[in-house]
């Protein structure tokens, strides 16, 4: 795995805060004639855990993707630190880390290698990458699975590997899509603790979730319904939860 540029440094809270909010300005996305997201303007603040909730198909993943710069909106833009998130090729900026709903792990690599590859992509030397990968896996209580090939792991274990990969790079922006869907109660709480720890470090943390416990544990909740932000109290979805 090749090193890229200089070694990554864990950003300090103040330096993250200095970048400002992760903002979406009048963002819309039209997919096949249907508005998956419609005229959305909002900010995600550093030091906060923001929950994005809503029914399936409401646009949570779409919003996270646009916010993280891996999906180009039809209209509008997202910015962070004064720069556009969309870089033109669909790749996220190195300050951004995703916990994807389908994990996005490389099946032929081991758990450790999947975590280390994110560090190596940010310029961390190989030995240090492996060491930090082991630390992150231990952080999520799967330190003993480092050598196991990802496709041998259970759904919950893979989800925690995906979390470890995202957390390992100490991102300024952490976007997690259903990071607790496969976890039991104990592990779910642990993941939320780690998300709050990242926010406490000053990162912008956004979690798309159906899980009421995650919504409950977040600092702020935004509700999406059919591609639009709706006030939580007006949302039938929120009231059902």
């Amino acid at each position: 795995m090749t090193t890229v540029g200089r070694h990554a440094m864990t950003p300090e809270r103040d330096s993250i805060a200095a970048q400002g909010d992760l903002g979406l300005e009048d963002v819309s996305l039209n997919v096949g004639g249907r508005w998956a997201l419609e005229r959305t303007t909002l900010e995600f603040r550093p030091g906060e855990v923001t929950a994005l909730s809503g029914p399936s198909g409401s646009g949570k993943t779409t919003l996270l993707s646009i916010a993280g710069g891996i999906l180009k909106p039809t209209t509008g833009f997202s910015t962070y630190g004064g720069r556009h998130m969309w870089q033109g090729d669909g790749d996220p900026r190195h300050e951004v880390a995703f916990v994807l709903q389908v994990y996005g792990l490389v099946p032929i690599l081991s758990a450790r290698e999947n975590v280390a590859i994110a560090l190596r992509a940010r310029g961390v030397p190989p030995d240090e990458s492996d060491e930090r990968a082991d630390e992150e896996l231990t952080r999520f209580h799967i330190g003993d699975l480092g050598d196991r090939q990802v496709e041998e792991l259970s759904g919950g274990q893979m989800q925690r590997v995906a979390c470890a990969r995202a957390f390992a790079v100490s991102p300024e922006i952490l976007l997690a899509d259903e990071p607790t869907s496969e976890l039991d109660e104990g592990n779910r709480e642990h993941v939320m603790d780690q998300l709050r720890a990242e926010a406490a470090r000053g990162a912008v943390v956004v979690v798309a979730t159906h899980d009421p416990a995650v919504v409950e544990a977040s600092d702020r909740t935004l509700v999406l319904d059919e591609g639009r932000l709706v006030p939580a109290e007006d949302s039938a979805y929120a009231s059902r939860r």
Binding site: T2, V4, I70, D89, G90, D91, P92, H94, A97, F98, L100, Y103, G104, L105, V106, P107, I108, N114, I117, A118, A121, R122, R165, V169
Partner: peptide
């Protein structure tokens, strides 16, 4: 495709 998407999501650039 899925492997490449996962690598790029982790921060590995397409050229690499």
């Amino acid at each position: 495709r899925a492997e490449v998407a996962g690598l790029r999501a982790a921060g590995v650039r397409p050229r690499l």
